[in-house]
């Protein structure tokens, strides 16, 4: 119960700060929408999109904008060294990690609410034809990506070149998540929908989520102790 209360306390604080500044939401959203529009100019010819472009572009937009959100979420804690205050408090450090993760996930969900329909519109992709599977893929893919990203962003908060290091470390580790997200989404968007394939990729994403979240909970405390 204490764990859940702490998670809610940290998440609520992050959301309150974001509601006041709207800094992460606006920058992330602007970046994701720009990304989709630029790709739309490249991959849509005479009103027809190329192959599986929609699935790839959707996940690229989520991954790139997610990296931006992750960096800023911890930059805020660094500016006034509030992360040190949290690390000094008696709260469970895994709860602190999950609280930060939930804050990032809610922000990314808000971005996806705009980006997913936009990709559907620009690439004439029936993203809502199988809503349960699609939401499952988005949810598990975003959790897997953000779980690793939150850990790395916290680790790098004091590194001088953190803005460069975060994507360099994050993308190679999360490639399985991005590939599973892309292939699962593509299976739902092709002419003959391959639901078993989408479910297989969804199962893979659930597996990645369990592994990544468990590893992050296990390593957060030692990596955050200087």
């Amino acid at each position: 119960m204490r764990f859940v209360e702490t998670v809610w306390l940290v998440t609520r604080k992050d959301l309150l700060i974001e509601a006041r500044s709207k800094e992460i939401l606006y920058t992330t959203l602007f970046f994701a929408v720009s990304c989709v529009l630029v790709f739309a100019f490249g991959f849509v010819r005479e009103g027809r999109p190329l192959g599986d472009a929609a699935a790839g572009i959707l996940w690229i937009a989520i991954a790139f904008s997610g990296t931006l959100a992750l960096g800023r979420a911890f930059e805020r804690e660094r500016q006034s060294e509030t992360l040190r205050a949290l690390m000094m408090s008696p709260i469970d450090r895994p709860a602190l990690y999950v609280g930060k993760l939930c804050g990032v996930l809610i922000l990314l969900a808000a971005v996806e609410l705009i980006v997913v329909p936009l990709v559907g519109l620009m690439f004439q992709a029936p993203l809502f034809a199988h809503p349960v599977l699609m939401i499952g893929l988005l949810l598990t893919g975003t959790v897997g990506f953000a779980a690793v990203g939150t850990l790395f962003a916290a680790m790098l908060v004091r590194a001088r070149s953190r803005d460069v290091l975060l994507p360099v470390l994050l993308y190679p580790i999360t490639i399985p998540v991005i590939i599973a997200g892309v292939r699962g989404t593509a299976a739902l968007l092709q002419a003959e929908v391959d639901e078993p394939m989408a479910r297989a990729w969804l199962s893979m994403l659930v597996f990645f989520d369990v592994v990544f979240v468990t590893l992050a909970l296990w390593t957060f405390e030692p990596v955050m102790t200087e």
Partner: peptide, 16 residues
């Protein structure tokens, strides 16, 4: 929980 620290940086959230 029994230690209090006032550092160089003030450990306050400016938006709150």
């Amino acid at each position: 929980g029994r230690i209090g620290l006032l550092g160089h940086d003030l450990y306050l959230y400016p938006e709150l």
